[in-house]
Design a protein around this nucleic acid. Structure first.
Lengths: 376, 376
DNA sequence: CTGAAAGCGCTTACAG
DNA sequence: CTGAAAGCGCTTACAG
C-alpha cells in the first residue's frame, strides 16, 4: 500500500482560511501521494487558491506580477493539478471517450492516432475502451461515459445502437463508420461510389466475369461496397456473382480453392476478376491462387480494400482503396470537442472520400504514382 | 452550451439531511447533464448515500434486501457514478495512463490491445497520450499523470528518462521496450539471443557473407539485435558488415540499390544474406532486389523482424521474428494494477521471449507450420 | 447493518 | 485584480 496510502491521512497544514465551521477547512498542503496541491502553491505564492486557479487557467484578470509568482511557485513545487478535482468542480472532465472494437491491424490504430491528435489539439485527453462483441461491453461503455465529456463510437464496435442512444442522452456522441443513430452526428468513409468506380475500372480492363467476395450485412461498409459493385455491373449489363466469405484468413483460402475448382468448359477460371471486401481477403486469395499457378492479373484480376501495407509489397501490387481513416478520427474528435462546448449537433452524415490505389493486380501496367495516394 | 450547462445551476432538491450548517447540504438530485446522482438513488431507495455507495461497491456489510433496493433504484434512474467525484473521494482514479509514440502499424495497436484487455480485467480504464518526439510531450504526459493511478511508457515514446523518473516520483510507473530507468519495473521483448539464433540459422544454411541492415543506437532494440548478430558471426568466425539504414521505406530502396551495385569479382552479390532490423526494411529491400531480377533466397537470403502481416503474403514468405507484443501490453497493465494496489516495485527487468518465424526467404524450403507461431 | 458528516482538491459566482 | 466560501458528487472513518 506504499504508494497508495502514504501520507493519505490528513496531514492538514491548514489552508489560508481559519473558518472551522465553513466547509473548506483543513486542506492538505500535500496530497495523497506527496503531490503538491493548490493550497501549497497558494501558500508559497502568498495568494489565495482562487488566484492560483485563475493564474493557472490563464485568466486575463490576474495581474502579471501575481501570475508570475503563482507560476513560479507551481513550477518549484512541480505542481500537477488533480484532474478529478478539477473535473468535479469545473463540471468538465477534459477527456473524450473512444469506443473501438478489438483493434486488429493498422485501421483502428490510424483512427486512434487521428482522434488523439485532434483531441490533444483541443487540450482533451482520450480514454479508450475496447468493446468486444462477446463480453458485456455495456458496463465498460457506461463506466466510460461517467468519466468523459463526450464519446465516439467506432465502426463495428460491440456497443449496439440501443446503448449508443442511451449514452447520447447524457453526453455528446458521434459515430464513425457505423450504422447511423437517428439524431447523432455520423462520419463515414465513402464506399459505394468508390466501389462502383473500381468495378468500372475492372470492366474497362475488359473483364466480363467479375465476382464479389465478402459478406455484406445490412448497413455495413461491405454492403455499400457490394452495392457499388452491383451498380457498375448493372450499368454495363454484366452479370455478377456474390461469394460470401468472412473477413478472416481461413475462409479466404477455402474460397480460393472454390474459385480454383470453378472452371468453364474451356478450362479457364469461371471468374476473371475478383472484387474483395478487404485486403486481407484479397491477399489470401491472390497468394493462394498464385501458389496454384494462376497468373494474376492475366487470368484473373484482383482488388482489395483498405490499402494495407502488404498490398504494396506483394507482386503484383494489389490494387486497393485507401480510406481516409486518420482524418475520420481527427474529424470525430474535432466535432466532439465542439459538441462538448455546446455546439448543436448536425446529424447530416458526413462522408469522406476514399481513394482507389491502382497497382497492377487489376490489370494496370503502370501503378498509380505513389504521390497520388499521398495527395488524398 | 446546451449539453454542457443545461440544469447546471443548482436545482437542489435537498439530500436527506437538513443540516444547513454542515457541509453537504443542497446536493443536486440530478447532475449537470441531467444524470442522476447518488442522492437521487438514495432518495428513491429510501436509504442514505453512504448505503448506496456501499451497495454499489458490493460491500458485504449491506443487507441483501437493502442492496436489492439500491440496485433497483440505480437501474431505474440509469445511474452512472461520476468518475471524477468517485476518484476525488476515493483517492483513486481507476485509470491507467499509457504513453505511446505515434502509433504506426500493428505493433502499438497490439500493445494497446493487450494493455487495455488486462487493465479492463482489473476494472481499470486506460487513457492514452501519443507522445510525439517533436512537440512538447512533457506537458501532455504531466497532465496525464494527474488523471491516472499509474503510467506505462512504451518503447521509443518521446518522454525522456528524466520525465519518466519525475512521474515515477508520484505514481507507479512501468516501462516497456525502452531503456530502463533505475528503480522502475521494466519489460522487454527478447532481442539479442533471438538475433543470434536467427543469424546462426542463416549460417547453417551455408551463408558466408551476411550483412546487418538497420541503425543500432545505444540501448535500443536494434542495438541488441545487431549485437546478437555479431555474436553469431564471432562464434562462427565469419566476417560481418553493418549497413546503417533508418527504419523507413525510402532508405530501404536506396540500400537495395547499394546492395545491388556491390558485386564481387565473379559478378555475384557481395552479400548473400541480409539480416534486417525490421520487416519494413526487409520487405522494401526484398521487393526491390526481386524487381531487379535477384532471386531470393537463392542469391541472397533475407530476414526481417516483427512478423508483420505482409511477411506472410510476399513470395518468398519473409522469415521474421514474432515479438510477444500483446503479452507485453498485458503484463504491463497487470503489473501496474498491482503496483497501484501498493505492491512494491520489482525493478529486475522482465524479458519475454521472441519467436523466429521461418518462412522461405531465409533459405528454408518448408516454412514453420503456422501453429508454431500461434503456440508462442 | 446503516446514517450523519467530513473531506477529497479543485472552480466559480459573489463581493469587494 | 483578489479573496472567502460554497459546492461539485462521491467515499469512508466514526458512531451507533
Amino acid at each position: 500500500m506504499a504508494q497508495a496510502t502514504a501520507g493519505a491521512s490528513g496531514n492538514a497544514i491548514g489552508g489560508a482560511s481559519g473558518n472551522a465551521i465553513g466547509g473548506a477547512s483543513g486542506n492538505a498542503i500535500a496530497g495523497a501521494s506527496g503531490n503538491a496541491t493548490i493550497y501549497a502553491v497558494a501558500q508559497r505564492a502568498g495568494v489565495s487558491t482562487a488566484t492560483v486557479s485563475r493564474a493557472l487557467a490563464g485568466s486575463p484578470k490576474v495581474a502579471p506580477a501575481t501570475r508570475d509568482a503563482v507560476l513560479a511557485a507551481a513550477r518549484e513545487l512541480a505542481y500537477v493539478p488533480d484532474a478529478s478535482a478539477r473535473a468535479l468542480a469545473g463540471r468538465r472532465t477534459g477527456a473524450l471517450g473512444l469506443v473501438l472494437p478489438h483493434i486488429d491491424g493498422a485501421y483502428y490504430a490510424e483512427l486512434l492516432v487521428g482522434f488523439e491528435m485532434a483531441a490533444s489539439r483541443h487540450d482533451l485527453s482520450v480514454t479508450i475502451t475496447l468493446a468486444n462483441p462477446r463480453d458485456d461491453s455495456a458496463r465498460a461503455v457506461r463506466e466510460l461515459s461517467g468519466r468523459v465529456d463526450g464519446m465516439a463510437f467506432m465502426a463495428r464496435s460491440a456497443a449496439g445502437t440501443e446503448l449508443v442512444a442511451e449514452i447520447a442522452r447524457r453526453r455528446p456522441v458521434i459515430t464513425v463508420a457505423r450504422e447511423q443513430v437517428p439524431g447523432l452526428e455520423a462520419l463515414f468513409a465513402e464506399n459505394r461510389e468508390t466501389a462502383r468506380d473500381l468495378t468500372r475500372h475492372l470492366l474497362d480492363h475488359g473483364r466480363t466475369r467479375p465476382v464479389f467476395v465478402g459478406r455484406p450485412e445490412a448497413g455495413s461498409d461491405l454492403e455499400a461496397r457490394h452495392q457499388g459493385y452491383c451498380e457498375a455491373l448493372a450499368e454495363a449489363g454484366v452479370q455478377g456473382r456474390l461469394l460470401e466469405a468472412d473477413l478472416a484468413e481461413d475462409e479466404g483460402s477455402q474460397l480460393a480453392d472454390r474459385l480454383l475448382a470453378d472452371r468453364r468448359p474451356d478450362g479457364r477460371l469461371a471468374a476473371d476478376a475478383i472484387v474483395c471486401g478487404n485486403d486481407e481477403l484479397a491477399l489470401t486469395i491472390m497468394t493462394r491462387l498464385q501458389d496454384q499457378g494462376v497468373r494474376v492479373p492475366e487470368e484473373v484480376a484482383i482488388t482489395g480494400w483498405d490499402d494495407t501495407v502488404a498490398a504494396a509489397y506483394v507482386r503484383p501490387g494489389l490494387t486497393s482503396v485507401a480510406q481516409p481513416v486518420r482524418r475520420l478520427g481527427e474529424l470525430a474528435a474535432a466535432r466532439l470537442a465542439l459538441l462538448v462546448d455546446g455546439e448543436p449537433a448536425d446529424p447530416g452524415p458526413v462522408v469522406l472520400p476514399s481513394t482507389p490505389v491502382f497497382r497492377t493486380s487489376c490489370g494496370c501496367t503502370t501503378p498509380t504514382p505513389r504521390s497520388a495516394k499521398e495527395l488524398s
